[in-house]
Design a protein around this nucleic acid. Sequence first.
DNA 1: CGGAGCTTTGAGGAGCTTCAATACATGTGG
DNA 2: CCACATGTATTGAAGCTCCTCAAAGCTCCG
Lengths: 243, 243
Amino acid sequence: MGSVGPTAQHRTIERSPAVTRRECENACASFLTDFWRGSADPVEFRQLYHLASEVELAPGQTIFSEGDYAASVFVVSKGCIRLYKHLADGRRQIVAFALPGEFLGMPIAESHNCSAEAIDQVVLCRFRHGEFVRFVQSSPNTMRRLIDFAASQLEMTMRVAMLLGYASAEERLATFLIDWRNRLGASSQFVPLPMLRRDIADFLSLKQETLSRTLAKLEAKNAIRLVPKGVVLLGLDAPVCAG
Amino acid sequence: MGSVGPTAQHRTIERSPAVTRRECENACASFLTDFWRGSADPVEFRQLYHLASEVELAPGQTIFSEGDYAASVFVVSKGCIRLYKHLADGRRQIVAFALPGEFLGMPIAESHNCSAEAIDQVVLCRFRHGEFVRFVQSSPNTMRRLIDFAASQLEMTMRVAMLLGYASAEERLATFLIDWRNRLGASSQFVPLPMLRRDIADFLSLKQETLSRTLAKLEAKNAIRLVPKGVVLLGLDAPVCAG
DNA sequence: CGGAGCTTTGAGGAGCTTCAATACATGTGG
DNA sequence: CCACATGTATTGAAGCTCCTCAAAGCTCCG
């Protein structure tokens, strides 16, 4: 329902073979760079290019829902996506924010284990599930990379689990802001936050009221400064996390 | 430091080739059964047998520490192990309890991302890291299984993260007890708890006082009955988790 | 300018933690 | 076999953090 599959109703750019390669080189550049770091095999690289197609989404659009049959494997090319799960009582847990170069969930799996929605304007790189799996199976190199990807996802999730278990609201928020800046590779002190407060709250397992109050507290401490669509990090690292 | 490597100082049973296979078939039986569910290849099965050796540990012994070079890959044959991480401020987070048939952490990784200690009397199945990785690389079947293993670990960790984020002490404990019973495949209502209260508390991110109180509360509700070295589950499933 | 959605602020309450003391278990030496 | 010592588990009372419910402020867009 509303998933971005080959039969989805929204805008999917299908291109002629002639332009496929170049467009895909742009769209998938960061993904392939990430995925292939080190041991590039030019032949496999090209193969993967030809399997990819491009999908563009407006803010708020659903990409897939938890439990959906995984017809496609997605990699983010541009924008920010929220990956979340619904709990029995209606609460929502954001599992991760996906950025360019990252898979949406675990590839290979038969069905999606979480839902995905575009936060801002998004461009995705799509592979048909079967084709992607066949490609991976034929390439021990790629399989190994997938294992590593899974391991790093596991590491990240464990880090979150520890954060949720033991950290105060202030520690959670500070850690989130620092991690987020690092993932964005932000050069300046300004860190954009394209998502809603509610998204951050649901990621850190806080109520949005508590999140607001904690942001205000950090600003009062001169650790951050709130600006439209983001924050400026001032002295967050040492002082806040230590105390 | 105190790790169970090929050069470790404690009891390692090195066997003659003649008895290797049979002992290992016992020791690794559950592991290989799990790992190979479905698509068994007898040849690879044998290969793996011959790479394995056996390690026995007393309660409380350290198997490896976070950050150690991963000289060995371990699979539990018998007993229960706590996998944990230390936080900056000295607190401890138990990441998982490992049971027979399970890997201790992610195989293939260069170094251990958590520490491991025997809870009770433990028997491990050990592979040298290099040999295990070479075997895995040579077997697409096994690689695929490893990806699936990683994905299921990821799924489990996400489940824990959600539990820690949103559930009350009572919900966490109830979920833990039910999951633990299911993993043990306990036929009777009695569920053994070989670990300390403190271990369970550090797993659920609760203080051990809170854990005790919550156990008492569940007993008062007739949901469980506390007995030495374990609990008897009475009516835990529906009533407690719903309310 | 007005409305809808998002964000911030306020007051009161519930749940977990902290510190402290008591009870229980296990193993050791007399 | 008992007495004691050590580590583990439970119970009690006070405090703090976060949550809940409620209202007001802000921002974006028609």
